[in-house]
Amino acid sequence: AEETGVRVELAEEDDGKKSSIALRLWVEDPKKLKGNYKDSGAIEFTFDLDTEVPETVAQEMVDSGFFLEIDVKIVGKSIRDRVSLIKWRRQRNASGHNGK
């Protein structure tokens, strides 16, 4: 995924089955964002792969004061990249199981 400056990673092992998964997001390269997030911590949250939209979580993070509105797109994209990767891996693992 192209470097957005915001890092999103799994905060727990992905068993490939449960729909809601814990993720951890933090600012790895503050220069790439408009706001000042120099020593902000990592934010852990759960995300439902089946029903939720990354951009909604990004907006909730802005509402909660973690990010400025102006950075909501970058945060949303970073979450979307990680979620797509998780879904892609799950499909690939699933296709691998039925005797391919």
Partner: peptide, 27 residues
């Protein structure tokens, strides 16, 4: 340090913890 928590009005819980140490050294 105890992790700070923020619960959004929509109900999602955000838990703030220090950035994973291993990542900081990579910069």
């Amino acid at each position: 340090s105890s992790a700070a928590q923020v619960v959004h009005s929509a109900g999602r819980r955000f838990i703030v913890s220090p950035v994973p140490e291993s990542r900081l050294r990579e910069q």
